[in-house]
Every structure is written in structure tokens, then in C-alpha cells.
Design a protein around this nucleic acid. Structure first.
Lengths: 231, 231
DNA sequence: CAATACCTTCTTGCATGGTAGAAATCCTAT
DNA sequence: ATAGGATTTCTACCATGCAAGAAGGTATTG
């Protein structure tokens, strides 16, 4: 029925198999397929995903709450431009939340996540030696994720993930050119955090983690400056 | 009260003048009018507020994201029961976020919010002398709110407010019986934070603030225990 | 009396038609 | 040619109809 309308040009019934519509659109924004300023029309998205406007609308509304899109009433929905200041603000919050995670995890003592962390750091050190930056990027993601889950605080995890989505952190790390010495320094910082957590030094782990996040934020911010200058 | 959602069929157009439907429902939950477990039917709310199901549905969906209600697919929407563990988790995050706010505000130096804070502390000290607990509760709220805005970090403010909504903090503070000596101690802690911020001692301010939040969380948790025992 | 199958009645979920408003475009007049 | 006003065409928004699933009560059967 709809095929007559949509089959021609766009709509290859992208039939969201398992992934939800919301995740689908979010990934497209985070992946940079929808650049800031792009209009996200309800009807076009509905046609493209072969659903009605209602679920599309719901997804867009949540994306607005997450801060990824801006809905201008009676005008349209657009991919938001994240300002440099916002990124700075988010890194400040990220630093604090991850510091808390390190402290909480240190307090817990012997937990399985500790082994995961140790394995991760060792793999990271190998990745640095092999200069395998893509493997390294994934390991970094896993390290931070393990820390969050290891803190055993669901509310913390929730706020953290919301923040990371808005930051498009994964995208930031991947696109930003890692400075030469940074990889080894970053891994050393990871190891230090790990050792402090193992030693159950909660305040030390918190401080070390905050320092680490601050240092890596500096790197990313420098890259984002140069990227911004090119525009 | 107990009949809750629908009074009669006579939809008393509670015509949400300026406040949005979302805020309206949220306040009712936070105010305790809708107790945990209460079913929030789309149709009944729609009739009651004289709108269609669609905006009601949108509001409920956001409330789910905020963690205030739980939507069980094809079953119904219910006011969530906040567990004791969740409250503990939220206080841990609250402590960290407010600590960050104190640090950031201390870093900023001479700003108008500093005067607001000083005026607030002085008023609080007077309220303690007069044993005016309702005035004190409002001043506490203002103190923390000023700190957050004074940090000049919108992302921090956003996460903080979401957290406070979920905690139903205002309700917690108002219903919980403040322990005798707590008021004066709490005010003294406020003053200490203020002085440290004034002295631009950012790390000191952060630690003092974290201690303060931790102390007051202990008070609230003790009360919430006794309340839970009564059920 | 107990257990099970069915049936009624709720619920949310999705699709779609109509509306108001904003913005861009075109048309007219100076 | 340019400025201003009417109009057309988008947009999000809201109301409502319809369908599918979950739950509870009831009747029937062992």
C-alpha cells in the first residue's frame, strides 16, 4: 500500500529489526550523518522508517530532552549545534561523575569488575606498544564503562550515559587525532587508577580519576579547537 | 485524595493556565497526592485536564524518563516506588554534583550570587534563632539553588534539577522531622562553605560542601527509615 | 471444591485527519 | 528595482479511531 509512495527514491523499509527507532536516530546524529542544523521532519522520518508520525514524534521529543535536537514549535526539529562552552561544561560534570565512580568502586573491594579492569589495562598497554589506536579507543570506552558499572550506582550510571550521549564522546575520541605521547600517558593513568582502586584507596582513586579525565579533556578540547578553526 | 485521578465525569477543566501539563502532573506526584503504586490512566488524566490522550501520553513518557512513573506496556502507568537504595544512590550523586558546584563557584571570584549566599546564610542564622523551620526549609532550598546557578554550568544545573525532582527532595525535607541540633549545625556548615568560597578556596569549598550534603543525607535517611518502618 | 478455559474489559500503542501558526514565496505597487 | 503585503506551503501539534495485548472475573468441567 505505502509502497507506491515510498518505494521509488528513499525508503528502503529500514525496518528497525531489534534496535528501537529512538536508538536508530540517535546513532545517526552521534555518527555525524545528520549534521548540526539539519532539519528532521516528522513525516520524512516516518516515511523512511515506514512507521507513523506518532512514534517518530515521541523519539524526537526524547532526543530533545537528551539535548541532541531542538524542536522549534510550529517550525521544525533540527539537530542541535553543541557549543564549545557546552562541551567544557560537560567535561566538568564528567570529571566529577567518573571521580565518584572510582571512589565508589574502590570502596567495594574485591569484585569481578576489578579483574575486567586489570585485563583491560594490560590490553591497553599492548595496544599502545602496537600503536593500534582503534583497539585502544575501544579499550578506553570499556575502561570507563567498567568503572561506571563497577561503582554499583544505577543513578550515577544513568546520568553518566545521558551525558556521554550528549557529548558524542565516542565520536569525539575517534575523530580527534590523538596526540603522540597521549596514549601511553593515558594508559599509565588508567593503571594508576586501577592500582589505587585495588589498594582500596578511595580518595586517591577519585583524585587520580579526576586528573585523568581533566587531562584527556584537554586533549580533546585542543583538537576540537583546531577543528572549529577549520570551519 | 484517594479517588485520585478522576473526581467525576464532569471534567472540571482544571485548565492549566500557564503551567504545563507535565509540571502539573509532576507536582502532584512530588506532592504526594499520587502515592506510589497509583495507576495513572491516560484517558482519565485526559478527561480530567480536558485535553486529548496524546499530550498526556507525552507527559507520562517524560515522567518515565525522569524516573517518577513506570510504564508497563499494555498494562498501565504507575507512580514509581522509590527504594531506599535509590535514595542512597541519589544522595551520592547529589553530594558530588553540589561539591562540584561549590568548587566552580569558588573559582569564579566576585559574583552577585556570592552576596545572595551571604544574605541567605544570615537569614538562616536568624531563622534558627527564631526556630522558624518552614522559613529555614525555604532558605535551604535557596542556598543550594544559588550555589548551582552560581557555578555557571548549565549542564550541571540540568542534571542536578533532574536529580532533585526524582528525589522529591523538597517533600523529603518538609515531611521529615528535622532533628533538634541539626538546624544550627547545618547553618554553620552553610556558613563555612560560604567563607571558603569567598576565600576562593575551591578544593576546600568542594570538600566542605560534600561533607555538608553527606551529613544532611544522614539525617534524611534516618527519618526515611522510621517512616518506612511505620508502613 | 478446585482448577482451567474463556470472555469481557481494561490498558497502552500506532495510524491518521484536521488545525493553527510560522516562514518563505510570489505578486503588486511605488 | 525594491519594498511591502497577501498567499501558499511547509511545520509541529492535537484529537480521535482502531488494534493488540494483559488481567481479572466468571463459568464450566474434572
Amino acid at each position: 500500500m505505502q509502497e507506491g509512495i515510498v518505494s521509488q527514491d528513499t525508503a528502503v523499509d529500514d525496518s528497525l529489526g531489534e534496535t528501537t527507532l529512538l536508538d536508530r536516530i540517535r546513532e545517526l546524529i552521534l555518527g555525524g550523518d545528520y549534521k548540526p542544523g539539519t532539519a528532521l521532519s516528522e513525516v520524512r522520518l516516518a516515511e523512511y522508517y515506514a512507521v507513523s508520525r506518532t512514534p517518530v514524534r515521541e523519539a524526537l521529543k526524547q532526543l530533545q530532552i537528551e539535548g541532541l535536537v531542538e524542536i522549534r514549535p510550529k517550525v521544525g526539529t533540527f539537530v542541535r549545534e553543541i557549543t564549545r562552552r557546552e562541551i567544557l561544561e560537560m567535561f566538568e560534570v564528567k570529571e566529577t561523575l567518573e571521580g565518584l565512580a572510582a571512589r565508589l568502586m574502590a570502596r567495594r573491594g574485591q569484585i569481578p569488575e576489578l579483574d575486567t579492569l586489570r585485563t583491560n589495562v594490560e590490553a591497553s598497554e599492548l595496544a599502545v606498544l602496537r600503536n593500534d589506536s582503534t583497539a585502544y579507543a575501544n579499550l578506553v570506552h570499556e575502561f570507563h564503562e567498567t568503572l561506571i558499572t563497577g561503582s554499583d550506582n544505577l543513578k550515577l550510571a544513568q546520568h553518566y550515559r545521558t551525558l556521554m550521549n550528549q557529548l558524542a564522546y565516542h565520536h569525539l575520541v575517534l575523530t580527534s587525532v590523538q596526540h603522540p605521547g597521549r596514549l601511553s600517558r593515558s594508559t599509565a593513568e588508567h593503571r594508576q587508577v586501577l592500582e589505587l582502586i585495588t589498594a582500596k584507596d578511595s580518595v586517591g582513586a577519585e583524585l587520580a580519576m579526576k586528573d585523568h579525565v581533566w587531562a584527556s579533556s584537554r586533549e580533546v578540547m585542543m583538537d576540537s579547537v583546531s577543528r572549529q578553526d577549520r570551519n
